[in-house]
Design a protein around this nucleic acid. Structure first.
Lengths: 339, 339
DNA sequence: GGCTGGATTGTAAACACTTACAAAATAAAA
DNA sequence: TTTTATTTTGTAAGTGTTTACAATCCAGCC
C-alpha cells in the first residue's frame, strides 16, 4: 500500500494525500477527513525511505559511544535518547570500543545512513593528538557533531561538558586540607576525560606544594574491574605507610580500592580516605558509601540536545558549554569543615 | 555527488557503479578499479535512503526497551548491538518506559522507519493480559519480533529467555535447605520477568510445605531504589523475628536489604540470608558480596541475534529458546552443602 | 452572469538508488 | 574465420515520497 493506492481510494491526487500526511493546512476539511479515513482503514504507513529521499533527512541522530553497557555511558545515552525523542528524532546507536579503525568505520557508516548529526558520548578520542581526531573533523564537514564530555575546537563541532579537571582538583584539595597528603590517583581508559581529571589531580598536588605525585593506571584484563583494581593495589608494598588517600577516576574503581583496604585491614575513612567519580549508584552500594563527584550528566545531556536543536533551527549556538562538578561527601572521607 | 556523477567521471554506466558498490562479481577488474578510484577521490557515499527505497531495507533493527540506563538492560542492549553489527545491521534505540501508549507509539514509529525487525528487551508487557499485547502481535504481521527475556506465542514472534522461575525456585530452595524458612520475596516493576520469578518463589515455598508466603512490592518513588527498599523494609515491626531470609528480584534490591540489615544491626549471613538476581556488578560492590543468580544474559542476546539472522536467511528457527539460570553463592548466604 | 482573488487540488519532475533485460564485447570452440 | 558461449556493460523501468508550479474551483463583488 503506497500513496497512489490511498489517493485512488480517496479519489484525490497523491499531492493531496501527501499534504494530509504532513499536516499541511491547504487542504479542505472534507478532503482531509476522507483521506484520513482511507489511511486509517488500510493501515497505511508512509515509506520512510522514500520520504527520506525526498526530504534528505529521516530525523535520525547517530549516537557513538565506546560501550553502552558501562553504567555511566548508559545513563548518558538514555538522557540523550529521551531528549532527542521529545524533539521528534530517533537514535541510531553505535558502540565502537576504543579501536580507531572501528570508530572511523562507525562514523562513516552513520554518515552513509544520512543521520542529521552525530552525538559522541565520552571523549574517547585522544584529546591531545590532533591527527587522531581528523576523522571527527572530516565528519563535521557533512553534519554537526556533538561532543558529550569532550572538547575539540572545529567549525561544526559543539561541546557540552563538565569541568572534570576542577572536579578532581576540588576533591583532591579537600583531601589535602583534611591533612591527607599521600594521595594515590587511580584511573583507567574508560573513565571520561581521563586526561583532564589527571590534570586536576596534578594541579591540586602541585598547588599544595606536594612534590610527589602517585598515579596508577588500571588496564582492564579480567573483565572484572573491581578485581583488576585489587590486584593492581596489592602490588604495593607497605601500602598503608605509603598512602593515606585514594582518588579514583570513577566509583567502581573506588569500590575496588575499598575492597582492597578491607582485605588489608585498613580502616576507611580513619586511616584512608577514598573518593570516586560520577555519583553513580555503585557508590551507594558499598559500606561505607563512597564520597564522589557529581558531574551533572543529565544537565549536560539536556544541554547537548538543546544546542543541537538550536543548530538545526539555524540559530547561532555556543560552541562549548561547561558545567561545574560538585563534590558529594559521603562516608569514605571525613573532610574538615572549610573555614 | 550521486551515482550519475560517479558513472560520468568513470566513463561507465550507473549500473556498473552500482555493481561495484554492491560487490557484485560481474565487473571486470579494470572497470572496478577505475570506479573505485573515482569513488575514493570524490569521497562518494551511496545515499542510504535511495538504497533503502530500492531494496526495501536499510539493514536496521529496532531495539525497544523500557529504560536503557538500567544496568541490566544496558548490558542486553550492548550485547545485541554488537551481535547485530557483526552481521551488518544497525540499531535504532527506543526507550519507552512502561506506559502502554508510549510503547505502542514507539513500535509504530520503528515500523514506519522500516526496520527489519524489532528486538524487545525485557518483558515489559503484561504477560497475562493478551489484549495488552495486541500491539506486539500487530507489529509481527509486518516483521519478525524478537523477545529478549519475554514469552509470547504468536506466528512471527521469537523468544529467547532464561528460566527465571527455576532460578528463583533454586535459590529459594537453597535457603530452605539451609534451614531458613521465613523468607521475604522483594520485587519491583523493572525487574525482568517479575511474575515468573514470583512464581518460582511461590512454588519453592509450597513444595517445601511452608504455608505462609511473604512478598513485598517496591514501587519506585524517590528515584533512589536503594532508599526505597530501606524505607519499605523499615515498615516491618520486629523484622528480625519475622524473617531469616530475603530473596530480591535484582541485585540492587538485595543491596537495599543489606543496608537495612546493617542499620538494624542484623548480621548477614548469620541471622539473615540475602540473595539478589542478575549477577550484576552491583552485587560485587557491597560487603559482604551478594549471592545472586546468573541469568545468562550474554548467551541469551547472542542466541537472539543468531535466531534473527536465521529468520532473515529464510531458515526455520526455534520459536522459543530457554536457558537455565545458575545460582552464584557468595557471602550473603551460607548454604549447606547438598547431600 | 461575468470577473477576480484566494483556497484547493492536480501534474509532473525531482530525489538516488537497484535490477531485469537487452546489447555488446570478449573468449572459446568448431 | 565463423559460430557459440560467456562475461561484461548499458538502458530503462521501478521504488514512494515531496513540492514547485499550473490548473481548477468557488464565493463575493460589480
Amino acid at each position: 500500500m503506497n500513496i497512489y493506492d490511498v489517493s485512488r481510494q480517496a479519489g484525490v491526487s497523491i499531492a493531496t494525500v501527501s499534504r494530509v500526511i504532513n499536516n499541511n493546512t491547504n487542504v479542505s476539511e472534507k478532503t482531509r477527513a476522507k483521506v484520513l479515513s482511507v489511511i486509517e482503514e488500510n493501515g497505511y504507513t508512509p515509506n520512510a525511505f522514500a520520504r527520506g529521499l525526498g526530504l534528505n533527512t529521516m530525523k535520525t541522530i547517530g549516537i557513538l559511544c565506546p560501550d553502552c553497557s558501562d553504567a555511566y555511558i548508559a545513563q548518558a545515552v538514555y538522557h540523550i535518547e529521551q531528549g532527542l525523542r521529545k524533539n521528534g528524532y530517533d537514535c541510531l546507536l553505535c558502540c565502537t570500543g576504543f579501536e580507531k579503525k572501528v570508530k572511523e568505520k562507525s562514523m562513516e557508516l552513520l554518515i552513509s545512513k544520512r543521520v542529521d548529526s552525530i552525538v559522541m558520548v565520552g571523549s574517547f578520542y585522544t584529546e591531545d593528538d590532533d591527527a587522531e581526531n581528523e576523522y571527527i573533523r572530516l565528519a563535521s564537514k557533512d553534519i554537526p557533531i556533538m561532543l558529550v564530555n569532550g572538547k575539540l575546537a572545529a567549525p561544526n563541532i559543539y561541546c557540552t561538558l563538565c569541568d572534570d579537571s576542577a572536579g578532581v582538583y576540588d576533591v583532591t584539595s579537600l583531601f589535602i586540607e583534611s591533612g591527607h597528603t599521600r594521595i594515590l590517583y587511580i584511573y583507567d581508559t574508560l573513565s571520561f576525560s581521563s586526561s583532564n581529571k589527571l590534570d586536576g589531580y596534578r594541579k591540586a598536588i602541585k598547588d599544595a606544594g606536594i612534590t610527589e605525585e602517585n598515579t596508577l593506571f588500571i588496564k582492564q584484563s579480567s573483565g572484572e574491574k573491581i578485581d583488576d583494581v585489587v590486584r593492581a593495589l596489592s602490588e604495593y608494598k607497605d601500602f598503608e605507610k605509603k598512602f593515606d588517600g585514594i582518588i579514583a577516576s570513577d566509583d567502581i574503581i573506588a569500590i575496588g580500592a575499598l575492597k582492597y583496604a578491607k582485605k588489608c585491614g585498613i580502616s576507611v575513612p580513619d586511616q584512608l580516605f577514598v573518593s570516586g567519580y560520577n555519583n553513580s549508584e555503585f557508590g551507594r552500594c558499598s559500606e561505607p558509601e563512597v564520597t564522589t563527584v557529581d558531574n551533572k550528566l543529565e544537565a549536560i545531556c539536556h544541554q547537548c540536545v538543546t544546542t543541537l536543536m538550536g543548530v538545526f533551527a539555524g540559530n547561532s549556538m555556543p560552541k562549548m558549554t561547561v558545567f561545574s562538578a560538585d563534590v558529594v561527601p559521603r562516608a569514605t572521607t571525613d573532610f574538615k569543615e572549610r573555614t
